[in-house]
Nucleic acid binder design. Structure first.
Lengths: 244, 244
DNA sequence: ACCCGTGGTGATGTATACAAGATGGGCTCA
DNA sequence: TGAGCCCATCTTGTATACATCACCACGGGT
């Protein structure tokens, strides 16, 4: 395997498939023919199949009983459940971090990230959205690290990749919404409280905060689903969501 | 793909690998050479590699940066964390079942399973161990179903397959321990309480019970690790556990 | 004696060929 | 005319061949 950062055929397949699916280019429940895709990506079926296997694990694709895969589709309640689950698992990471004690260095790193988010929120010329998303992801990854458990870290990573459950899944496009920045400030306030709880060894508080923090994503989901078509087109993966 | 129950080459590889690893035949951190294994199982590398990919996802194998896989090794605290995580996720399933309301039919099915466990505990001629293990697994699967959420069901299934975190991971061999049956009765009492909490729509109680119930597995783990060599040989996967 | 470069060896990643099975359309028969 | 069966086609699952890359030992130079 190419060590490090070289773009392997498998990566090409993975990125290509994700992009195809989330962009809505292929519609939900449609079958994905392997040869056609392998020709499109100019790779052989072997790495393509491996990428499809991974996407099945992630839940973006479903296996068909008779063989092959199709694009998965999600209901609102699927996504709500996935978000709830993320909150629960991040909450456990936060609780363990509080109970077991996080290192001063890691906590300081959290503070630095949160300072960065403050700066992104108050950037001259308005909200620096990309920077916010990147730092937000960093903060959530750091939360998993604070628990000091490789198992937790791994599972937080995993649940964060559940389709449409990531901390920044439904942020795209919301910068059009007037009080969006205010909502980000509320999120940031929760970030600060979360770190304070961990620092103060308040496990139950940390857990509850992380859970409620994740539920902010539910509001974002509803905002986006109620939005107009222009908004819909900007949100990756929204085409996979059916009504109920 | 062969629909249904035919034994495919992939299944052969998966079962063979799992058995090799859990039996301790290959030691922790040792590399798994693909060609050698494919010859041993009399299959080609293609389905073998797919099986290895899956085991990497499950955490039983680790990918080596330079390519290939090795057998993972676990510390006691890895397993404790995995058990805690299972408790948290099963707890969430139980809470959602209570909050959203489980169907009477599903609850009745739970009761039937629990009656079966009672029967297995009091079987003429002593504890019917295999029956207990099977019914216990059924009960835990049912718990996931009660939540009414496909997402929860999927993730409970998944976390139950984390290495050495399953509800029956460390039961093997414990029938040698005198008060083992008593410990199973305690577990069964928690099962009953759990169903009662869900039936009574007591979400927080259900969640707490499921968490504490999972932690019984921690006791089993410690019993087994303190046990003698005769016990060690009977517990699948214990060879992968290193001290700290 | 020790370090560095170089070639051999075996590993994995990828491509392609082959075979079994599913799918769909057309044909036959009632 | 409609229903059921059969065959062609395409799909996937598996096997195998090939290319590339890492690891390791050996030899030469300092």
């Amino acid at each position: 395997m190419p060590a490090g950062d070289r773009m392997t055929q498998f990566d090409k397949a993975l990125l290509g498939l994700r992009s195809m699916i989330l962009s809505g280019e292929v519609e939900a429940n449609s079958r994905l023919p392997e040869v056609q895709l392998s020709e499109r990506f100019e790779i052989s079926r072997t790495p393509l199949r491996k990428a499809m296997d991974l996407l099945v694990e992630e839940g973006l694709l479903e296996r068909i009983e008779t063989g092959g895969c199709r694009v998965a589709s999600f209901t609102r309640s699927d996504i709500v459940d996935a978000i709830e689950l993320r909150g629960v698992i991040e909450g456990t990471a936060a609780r363990l971090a509080a109970e077991r004690g996080a290192s001063a260095a890691d906590l300081a790193q959290c503070d630095r990230i949160l300072d960065g988010i403050d700066a992104a929120l108050d950037a001259p010329g308005g909200l620096d959205f990309d920077r916010y998303v990147a730092l937000n992801a960093q903060f959530h990854a750091m939360l998993a690290t604070l628990s000091g458990s490789a198992v937790m870290r791994r599972e937080v990573d995993r649940v964060t990749r559940l389709p449409l459950a990531s901390p920044s899944a439904f942020l795209q496009g919301q910068d059009l919404i007037p009080d969006f920045r205010e909502s980000l400030r509320r999120a940031q306030h929760q970030h600060r409280a979360l770190v304070a709880a961990i620092r103060g060894r308040e496990g139950a508080r940390a857990e509850a905060l992380a859970r409620e923090h994740a539920r902010l994503a539910r509001q974002n989901l509803d905002h986006v689903m109620k939005g107009d078509a222009r908004l819909h087109a900007r949100v990756p993966g929204l085409a996979l969501v059916s009504a109920p």
